[in-house]
């Protein structure tokens, strides 16, 4: 999963979804994943409905289905685990293609697969249509504590820089013929991790000095706090009600 972290998933487009306020998208995404998570697994129709709406949103966002599919591979380890369940699970068994599996286990597999894939699709849609600084801004508008927001903002700002430094260290090591295959050869990697920490910490101190030099007092100054833009409430509300309503109907019906 390491490689996936190094770049954002944003897809540059000009769709309605891209233009939505980030806080609206955050609320919508959260409402959708919570609804998906609480839907009972027997309500197969509900998951079909969610999938249809998400597919529709993907189309409106002009995200290629292939992009979504590739990004969904991030949940692969859990899918593997889910596929294993029928064989290690307990309870009543049945035969599928001549193999004895647990009935309850099959439901378990379905449950994890459906929820993990749908939930991840919602997250991928959110990140594909919202740039990282906007996500952070959305969190701030949704009243996530300021200290948490400030630290996160700095992390995002310096992430690429530090990842680049890491990359240069690795290139420098490879250029001198370092190609480790066993943990016993890992010392240079660990040392470079230590060196990278020292560099990061020292950069933190220099940035702090640069902040003090411009009148920093310990709190990040905030430009006049943005009020929550309610113009997009209708769309968000519709999505959340649609998903939550489905989840509730499914809960009652099963």
């Amino acid at each position: 999963m390491g490689a996936g972290h190094s770049h954002a998933l944003y897809v540059h487009e000009h769709s309605v979804v891209h233009r939505m306020a980030p806080q609206a998208k955050l609320v919508a995404a959260l409402g959708m994943v919570v609804s998906i998570a609480i839907t009972p697994r027997e309500a197969v129709w509900a998951f079909g409905f969610y999938a249809a709406v998400i597919a529709g949103l993907t189309g409106v966002s002009r995200i290629r289905p292939g992009f979504l599919a590739v990004r969904l591979l991030a949940v692969a380890p859990f899918v593997l685990f889910a596929l294993f369940i029928p064989f290690i699970a307990t309870g009543e068994t049945t035969e599928v293609l001549g193999i004895t599996v647990s009935v309850d286990g099959l439901w378990g597999t379905w449950n994890i697969l459906a929820k993990a894939l749908l939930g991840a699709s919602v997250s991928i849609l959110l990140t594909a249509t919202t740039e990282i600084p906007d996500i952070i801004r959305g969190l701030s508008i949704l009243r996530v504590p300021a200290l948490f927001i400030s630290i996160t903002t700095f992390m995002i700002r310096y992430l690429e820089l530090i990842a680049d430094e890491l990359g240069r260290m690795r290139v420098a090591m490879t250029a001198r013929g370092y190609d480790p295959r066993w943990i016993s050869q890992a010392r240079p990697i660990a040392s470079s991790a230590g060196a990278l920490f020292v560099r990061s910490y020292e950069r933190g101190e220099r940035v702090h000095a640069a902040m003090l030099a411009r009148g920093f007092t310990g709190e990040m100054p905030m430009p006049s706090t943005e009020a929550i833009d309610r113009s997009q409430c209708a769309g968000v509300l519709m999505l959340v009600v649609l998903f939550a309503g489905t989840a509730i109907v499914a809960l009652v019906a099963t």
Partner: peptide, 13 residues
């Protein structure tokens, strides 16, 4: 004060 490393000076998004 303008610091030598611009990555120290420019810390905002």
């Amino acid at each position: 004060l303008v610091f030598q490393d611009t990555n120290d000076q420019l810390f905002m998004p």
